[in-house]
Amino acid sequence: MIEILQYGFMVNALTAALLSAIACGIMGTYVVVKRIVFISGGIAHASFGGIGLGYFLGIEPVICVIPFSIVSALSIGEVSRRRGLSEDAAIGIIWAMGMAIGIMFISLTPGYAPDLFSYLFGNILTVPYSDLLIMLLLDVVIVTIVYLFYKEFLAISFDEEFATVVGVPAHRLYLLLLCLVALTAVVLIRVVGIILVIALLTIPATVSRRFTDVLWKMMVLSMIFSAMFSIIGIYLSYLCDLPSGSTIILVSSVVFLLSLLIPSRHIFKY
């Protein structure tokens, strides 16, 4: 296995796997415990509009998708709170709207859209060096903000209403949390693609949840699982010439299903 490290693209792919594991271990934990899986899926899909806009304006799509995904996160966070509007309907609408905007922009862009497939389904074997820098930067932002607001995020995740009563600006912090989910989606686009982002946000955290009752330990475990899934996925996709994004997700899914076979009473929780 060592000899494949001679290839520059392989080193980039493994670096991307580790960098994405940091974001998805931390934010995936919040997504799972706060039960915002569907919202996060909506944010990730809606940010496809940013990819389209990037093509249209001739800007690097990964850069364009950052502001776009933040706007999607804020709109989903606000719209889903409206009284008289069902939350899942609001999410579904913004989910589809963002994707439609993306497709519209791409069709308006003259010529052929290169790499389009890799944004949708990911291709970790072709991650350029510049994207690694963006991923690193986003990781730093996510880790810093979660470090600063760890106790507030824990309070609003457990009981948002009570947190409001004791004076935590719960709604604003909730929107901040959704923005971090949006940034995580950006980090994961290159690894598994927009369509499969939600799998890496949920599977490692869900598997980790079975092994610990402590939030920060769950984050660390999720990072380890996520890195493991990606690295195994990369190796298998290289070996068998399979699409990397779906290989990573299938590896994760198999581990998830296997973890269900261990009865909970046999699991010692750390």
Binding site: K151, E152, L154, A155, F158, D159, A163, V166, G167, V168
Partner: peptide
Amino acid sequence: LTGRAGQRLFGRY
């Protein structure tokens, strides 16, 4: 401890 979360923003308890 979340009962004290609103006492000050940022940082630890």
